[in-house]
Design a protein around this nucleic acid. Structure first.
Length: 430
RNA sequence: GCCCAGGUAGUGUAGUGGCCCAUCAUGUCGGCCUGUCACGCCGACGACUCGGAUUCGAAUUCCGACCUGGGCGCCA
């Protein structure tokens, strides 16, 4: 019966493991195999004079990264990794690996990210790459656990949509039978419609598509968004929800991902402290202008240079609040006493934006007005506006970039490291 | 979209006009080796993105194409 390598200890006695041949060191009369599965690495030691002819012929056929099934006695040996090794009674070549390898799984020789992504199935065998996705899996679970425990419903919404509904970002057009359609940039409008349906608290973790031709380490053309919407809540409440969630995810990863964090050489995951600072947009602009010496003015978008300067100044997670209505989407609720400023916020990590959200406009006429003032046509998305005529509760929400959350948590240099099969300006395969 | 950098064995690199039928490492193959853990030692194998130009001579200079990385713009 096969057991995970992690469970092989000096006390195990007889064991059978199946895994990939990570490394081979042939010393002549003695050969060491490092066998790897997703739980760890085990040394298999073959004293050539003491094993059967079948074992000898099998190891002769075995190449690096082949899959082997090995069984034998586990011995406590100080000199072996993990303090134990297995001496095989049987050694079966399950699947021989071709050679040469497209990249070096053992990482003796580095590989460019591009090479790694071309051979992602092999790249993902590297323990530190596996670790990223073990952490991502746990983070996803932590998000779901957190939101379910607070009474949220998870929903799914269409990724194929009829029209460019939000303005702003570019959309990917696709052929939909005889009609033109697009890949959705955000579940925003659908989340809001479910507020109109009375679901009160919903979330969706799903893909979003942006057809921007950017070429950076923090943008993807297909990303994963953790989207939340809450009825009868304002922007303050969903900011508290968001910061609590982020802290919860960090804690959960720290508590349950010791192995992966170790593989990533993260000794201690720094858990952000809530509440995060609330930095009004006007103050953020002031900081950026002072720090960069550039003519950054109230009303400007916060560009990369400004974002970096403010991040360095803040030094931890923070919110930028109270944005000018003019540079936020039409669905962000303006303040009653000063409609030029709205109840929108961005959650920032010192390195980059992680999330943006707001209290939403829930009054039909105001929403129509806001859409028009953005130069958009209300008629083109009547399907969205109609629910606002039939009892739409006040509501607020946000969208959090899953890859950026993982990237900043683990200190990854490139967002593509946080996705198995990234889609960027140039990459469509694998 | 603008700008910058780059493309040399399977992988990562050195090489800025002749010293290069190309360096080093890793890998693969063969040989030696019973405690390795980046095992060691010996030997072999394997590459200049493509097209054109300049030149006695081009991996190296120039032009074009293709491909890639990055910065910025843009980005719910």
């Amino acid at each position: 019966m096969r057991i995970p390598i992690q469970e092989v200890t000096p006390e195990t006695g007889q064991a059978e493991v199946i895994g990939w041949v990570h490394e081979v060191r042939d010393l002549g009369g003695l050969t060491f195999f490092l066998i790897r599965d997703r739980t760890g690495i085990l040394q298999v030691t073959v004293p050539k004079k003491k094993v059967s002819a079948e074992v000898l012929s099998a190891i002769k056929e075995t190449s690096r990264e082949s899959i082997v099934r090995v069984s034998g006695v586990v011995k406590a040996i100080d000199k072996a990794p993990g303090g134990r090794e297995l001496v095989p009674d049987t050694f079966e070549l399950v699947c021989r690996c071709a050679s040469p390898l497209p990249l070096d799984v053992v990482e003796k020789v580095p590989a460019d990210l591009d090479t790694r992504l071309d051979a992602r199935f092999l790249d993902a065998r590297r323990p530190r790459v596996t670790a990223v996705f073990q952490v991502r899996s746990q983070a996803t679970k932590a998000v779901c656990d957190y939101l379910f425990s607070r009474g949220f419903l998870t929903i799914t919404t269409p990724k194929v949509v009829a029209a460019a509904t939000e303005g702003g970002t570019e959309l990917f057009p696709i052929a939909y039978f005889e009609k033109e359609a697009f890949l959705n940039q955000s579940p925003q409008l659908y989340k809001q419609m479910m507020m109109g349906a009375g679901f009160e608290k919903v979330f969706e973790i799903g893909p979003i598509f942006r057809a921007e031709e950017h070429n950076t380490t923090k943008h993807l053309n297909e990303a994963t968004s953790i989207d939340v919407e809450v009825s009868f809540a304002d922007h303050h409440e969903v900011m508290r929800l968001l910061e609590d969630l982020v802290v919860h995810v960090y804690r959960s990863v720290q508590e349950t991902c010791a192995g992966p964090l170790d593989a990533l050489e993260i000794r201690e995951l720094a858990i952000p402290e809530a509440p995060f600072d609330r930095l009004p947009y006007a103050d953020a602009i002031g900081i950026a202008a002072k720090a960069t010496g550039e003519p950054i003015q109230y009303g400007d978008d916060i560009g990369t240079v400004a974002e970096k300067a403010i991040g360095e100044h803040m030094g931890a997670h923070y919110f930028i609040t109270d944005w000018p209505t003019a540079i936020k989407p039409y669905y962000a609720m303006p303040y009653e006493d000063d409609p030029s400023v709205c109840k929108a916020f961005d959650l920032m990590h010192p390195r980059m934006e992680l999330s943006s959200g707001s209290q939403r406009v829930h009054q039909h006429d105001l929403l129509v007005h806001q859409i028009q003032s953005k130069g958009l046509s209300p008629e083109s998305f009547a399907f969205y506006l109609t629910p606002f005529l039939y009892g739409m509760p006040p509501h607020a929400g946000w969208g959090l970039g899953a890859e950026r959350l993982i990237m900043t948590m683990l200190g990854l240099g490139n967002i593509r490291e946080a996705v198995l099969f990234p889609r960027d300006r140039h990459r469509l395969t694998p």
